[in-house]
Amino acid sequence: MAKQQAGNKPTMADQADRHVLYQKSVQAPEAEVAFFDQVFPELRGRKALTMKEDFCGTAYLAAEWCKSDPQRTAIGVDYDEETVEWGRKHNIEAEGGDLADRITLHIDDVRNVTEPKVDIVCAFNFSYCLFEKRNELIDYFKKARESLVDDGLLILDLFGGTECEDVVEEETEIEDEPATYIWEHVAFNPIDHHMKCAIHFEFDDGSRMQNAFTYEWRLWAIPEVRELLEEAGFSKSRVYWEKYEDSDDDDDELEGTGEYEEVTEVENQESWMIYIVAEK
C-alpha cells in the first residue's frame, strides 16, 4: 500500500494511519450532526435522540452524535471488522465516560440489523451505492425503513456533476498533517454507470500511500434513488443542496457555505454533493 523510499528508514507513508487520514480528509461528523439537528426538527417537530449509522466504518459519526447530547444513543453497522474495531478503540473507548455504553457496534451486513428502531438511519460517503442492482438497493431501503420509528428519517448523501463521469484526480492538503489527500476517478462505464474510485495519500517526504481505500459502485442518479425510495415504501423524499456564495478571491467563482437547503430545481455544476432525506 505504501510506496517506500530507498533505504531502510521508514517513510511517512509507512508510519501513517490510513484511518486517521481518512477521517481528517473525508469526514465532517460535526457538520453532519448539525444537518440532522436542522432537518429533523423542521420535518418532525422534535429533537432526534437515536441514530443508526449504516456502513459506519470507524463509527466516527456515531461517536460525534453521542458526544453532542448525553441523551443520545447510536448503533453502528459495518461488515469490515478491522475498521470497526479501530473505531471502537480510537473513537469510542479513547473518549472515556459513558460513550461506549451509548454506542452499539455490529460487525454485520447492514440489512441484518433493524432493531431497536431509531429516529434517524444514515448511509454516508455514498456507501449504499455498493448496491448496483435495483432489487438490491430497494431491499436495502426497505430494511432501512424497517429500522425507523414511525416518524423516522433515512438520510443519504450522493455526489454527481458534469465531471463525475470523467477520469480525474483531485488533490487537497490535509490540515495539520504532512500529507495530501488524492481522490481519483479510476474508471467509469457509461453503459451501466459502474465506477471505480480510489483514495491515495502523498506525504511531504515524497512517499505515497497508494490505494489506501478503493471503491467500486454504481453512480446512481438523484431521480433513480428517489424513485427506488418510493418503491421501498417511503412516503416522501427531499433533496437538500449546498448554498453557494461569491468567493472573496474571484467574483466569478462560487464557494460552498456548508449550509444546505431543500430545492426542487438547480443548475448543474462540475461537482456537487447533496443530501436526500426520506420520510417513513
Rank of each mutant, 00 (worst) to 15 (best):
A123Y: 01
L21T: 00
S25F: 03
A6Y: 09
S147V: 10
S25I: 00
N189R: 09
D251M: 13
S237A: 14
R72T: 05
E136H: 14
D151K: 14
E173S: 10
Q4V: 03
D246E: 14
K133V: 03
D249E: 11
T257W: 09
M195W: 12
Y60S: 04
N189Q: 08
D54C: 11
Y140E: 00
G96E: 07
N135E: 15
D157A: 11
E132I: 03
G161S: 07
R145M: 10
I199S: 00
G97Y: 10
T83S: 13
W65K: 02
V77T: 03
A2W: 02
V113N: 10
G45M: 06
R145L: 08
I92F: 05
D204T: 10
V77D: 00
K117V: 08
S25C: 02
D109C: 12
V26N: 12
W183T: 03
D14T: 12
A13S: 08
G96P: 02
E245Y: 07
E175Q: 09
E227M: 11
D248I: 02
R88V: 08
F234Y: 15
D37T: 10
V186W: 04
H106W: 06
T162V: 06
E163R: 12
E184R: 14
S127V: 01
Y22L: 05
F131G: 00
E216M: 02
W217R: 07
Y181E: 00
L153I: 15
A6E: 13
Q269M: 13
C66E: 00
T257S: 12
M195D: 02
G152Q: 12
Q5E: 02
E32T: 13
T180M: 04
Y240P: 05
C56G: 08
T172V: 13
E173C: 06
N189P: 05
E115L: 14
W183Y: 13
E171G: 09
F234L: 12
Q38K: 15
G97V: 04
R134P: 01
L156E: 11
E177H: 05
N125F: 09
V84C: 09
E30P: 07
E175P: 04
T73H: 04
T264P: 00
L21I: 02
K236N: 14
I222G: 07
V77M: 01
